[in-house]
Design a protein around this nucleic acid. Structure first.
Length: 310
DNA sequence: AATAAGGTCAACCGCAACAAG
DNA sequence: GCTTGTTGCGGTTGACCTTAT
């Protein structure tokens, strides 16, 4: 992969020295004249390659190596529906994210979805657990997930970067252990247990084809987003629960195989579907309920507020 | 422990839009 | 108006890492 082409142009991973040269160039001349970097003999890289490196890795305030937060995830899904695969445009709504980040995020997500759907006919034993979990995972998506989006104006103020750093670190928290300690009623706010199949339809029939969809949705800012939401692809799976044959896919597996809480899980799914406001039985043992879940189900659950924050 | 499968990320490629000559 | 060079964008690929078997 790494190496020089016949014309002497280097390709492949960038070295620290190359980054340094590129950064120096940008400091001196700004993020432009990429091709002059090579013509001046500073680097054996194409202008395109230099630009790409700057945009994706060296630009200040990038959230490199930071998983997409729930909010970011929602923004991408929302805007992909609105704009289609206009990654650069979508990225302008996500501070610190590049078009490449958004593109990669989306394609992984699509792959995952495709695989889930493809496997749904004949799930392996190990998939059974996961699929149910994902259904649960998705069923609690807040119904008011429409967003008020406005392309932000970025500044380089320290205030903004520290806020950014904070949001980045909070979204990177590995919180499965903390979550395991939280009683179920604290995690699942019954008010949030409504389900909106439109959301799924949107994912597979982008609103670009139906722009009125976006406009018709109530728009609320991030700060008013439901505090507990789940990965949206799971909603598609949940939608499949409408199909009575869905449970056949689990074969002989019954809820006993999923731990003590699985019965509640299916009740929960049912209440999600009806939008009922039942409260969750507080006699459920949280540990037994969650222990059978793969930890990735917790990935998108915000850590609970500390008692002082409540 | 070894291997396969899946996921993530960085980088390349081709194309289109735009500007300069 | 045409050609050429530059920039920006979206699609794709391959390496690497993680997780499952």
């Amino acid at each position: 992969m790494e190496g020089k082409r016949d014309d002497g142009i280097r390709k492949g991973p960038w070295k620290a020295e190359e980054d340094e040269v590129l950064l120096n160039h940008v400091k001196k001349y700004g993020p432009r004249d990429w091709s002059s970097i090579r013509s001046k003999g500073l680097l054996q890289r194409t202008g395109k390659s230099c630009r790409l490196r700057w945009v994706n890795k060296l630009r200040p305030n990038l959230k490199n190596g930071c998983k997409f937060s729930l909010e970011e995830e929602r923004v991408v899904i929302e805007l992909q529906g609105q704009f289609g695969n206009k990654w650069a445009r979508i990225a302008t709504y996500l501070p610190g994210r590049t078009d490449n980040d958004v593109k990669n995020f989306w394609s992984s997500r699509q792959k995952r979805l495709a695989r889930i759907l493809q496997n749904s006919g004949a799930p392996s034993k190990s998939q059974k657990n996961k699929r149910v979990v994902q259904s649960y995972h998705g069923c609690c998506q807040g119904s008011d997930s429409r967003l008020a989006l406005e392309a932000p104006k970025f500044s380089s103020s320290s205030e903004e970067s520290s806020a950014r750093a904070q949001s980045c670190s909070s979204s990177c928290i590995e919180n499965s252990d903390m979550i395991k300690m939280v009683p179920l009623p604290d995690l699942v706010n019954p008010r949030l247990l409504t389900f909106e199949t439109n959301f799924i339809h949107q994912e597979f029939s982008p609103a670009e084809k139906n722009p009125s969809y976006i406009e018709s949705q109530p728009q609320i800012p991030f700060s008013q987003q439901p505090e507990l939401t789940f990965s949206p692809e799971s909603q598609e799976l949940l939608a499949r629960l409408e199909d009575p044959s869905i449970f056949e896919m689990f074969g002989p597996l019954d809820t006993c195989g999923l731990g003590n809480g699985a019965d509640q899980l299916f009740e929960l799914v049912g209440s999600c579907r009806t939008g009922a406001n039942e409260t969750i039985d507080s006699s459920i043992t949280p540990d037994s309920f969650f222990d059978d879940f793969p930890t990735d189900v917790f990935d998108h659950i915000e850590p609970p507020p500390s008692p002082s924050e409540r």
